[in-house]
Amino acid sequence: MRESPLLLAVSEIGGYPNFTELYQGLGFEVITETSMRKVLKLLKKKVPTVIVAEFNYQSDFRDRTSSLESMMSVVQRHNGIRVVIFYDKEHESQLAKLQARYDISEALSFPISEEKLSAAVKLKSC
C-alpha cells in the first residue's frame, strides 16, 4: 500500500478557514502545528511534501521578518518541499524579503481562495 504524502499546516495565529478537508481530499496526510517550536521539532523527524504556513510579520525582530525564517532555514536543506505561504497584503513588501532569500512555491494573500490553494498544494502527479 502506498503511503500518502505529508502536508504540514502551520497555523500560529489562524483566523481563516481550516483547510484540512481540502488537503485530505487531495490525498495528503495532514499534520497541523500551532507553534514554530513544535514545527522545528517535527521537521527533525519527518520531511513533508508540502508545508502551508502563515507569514506573520514581526517588526520587533531585529534580524528577521518572522518566525518563518527559522523554518525555512531547515526546509532549504531538503529538496522538493513545496512551501505555500498565506499573507496579509499590507505585509507584501516584507514577504518579498523572505522570498528573495528562500524558495517559496506560492504566496496567497488573504482571503484565501480554495481554488488557488488547491492548485498551489496539488502534486504534479495528481
Results as ranks from 00 to 15, higher is better:
residue 29 E to N: 00
residue 26 L to C: 09
residue 101 R to I: 05
residue 114 E to P: 09
residue 67 S to N: 09
residue 114 E to T: 12
residue 28 F to R: 02
residue 75 V to F: 05
residue 95 L to I: 06
residue 19 F to A: 07
residue 44 K to I: 02
residue 100 A to R: 04
residue 92 E to V: 06
residue 14 G to Y: 07
residue 10 V to N: 01
residue 51 I to R: 04
residue 112 I to S: 13
residue 75 V to K: 08
residue 81 I to G: 15
residue 40 L to T: 10
residue 48 P to N: 01
residue 120 A to N: 06
residue 76 Q to G: 11
residue 107 A to L: 06
residue 37 R to Y: 12
residue 63 D to A: 01
residue 78 H to I: 11
residue 124 K to T: 14
residue 100 A to F: 00
residue 74 V to M: 11
residue 59 S to H: 09
residue 68 L to C: 03
residue 63 D to Y: 00
residue 123 L to W: 08
residue 124 K to P: 13
residue 79 N to G: 13
residue 112 I to V: 11
residue 46 K to R: 04
residue 101 R to K: 11
residue 8 L to G: 00
residue 68 L to T: 01
residue 26 L to V: 14
residue 70 S to Y: 14
residue 5 P to M: 00
residue 47 V to P: 10
residue 108 L to F: 04
residue 60 D to Y: 00
residue 94 Q to T: 11
residue 125 S to W: 14
residue 13 I to M: 15
residue 125 S to M: 15
residue 80 G to W: 12
residue 115 E to Q: 07
residue 68 L to Q: 04
residue 55 F to N: 06
residue 82 R to W: 02
residue 79 N to S: 14
residue 65 T to E: 12
residue 16 Y to K: 12
residue 4 S to F: 08
residue 73 S to M: 03
residue 41 K to M: 05
residue 3 E to H: 08
residue 2 R to N: 12
residue 121 V to Q: 10
residue 12 E to H: 09
residue 37 R to H: 13
residue 19 F to Y: 13
residue 105 S to C: 10
residue 55 F to I: 02
residue 55 F to H: 03
residue 24 Q to Y: 00
residue 33 E to T: 11
residue 96 A to N: 03
residue 4 S to V: 08
residue 121 V to N: 10
residue 17 P to H: 03
residue 49 T to M: 11
residue 26 L to W: 15
residue 92 E to I: 02
residue 115 E to R: 06
residue 50 V to W: 06
residue 44 K to E: 02
residue 34 T to C: 05
residue 24 Q to H: 08
residue 70 S to H: 14
residue 58 Q to P: 05
residue 73 S to R: 07
residue 100 A to P: 00
residue 43 L to S: 07
residue 62 R to T: 01
residue 84 V to Y: 03
residue 95 L to E: 05
residue 10 V to F: 01
residue 39 V to E: 03
residue 83 V to H: 02
residue 82 R to N: 02
residue 74 V to H: 07
residue 100 A to N: 03
residue 89 K to G: 12
residue 46 K to M: 01
residue 18 N to G: 13
residue 61 F to R: 07
residue 64 R to M: 05
residue 72 M to K: 07
residue 106 E to Q: 06
residue 45 K to I: 07
residue 116 K to C: 11
residue 71 M to H: 07
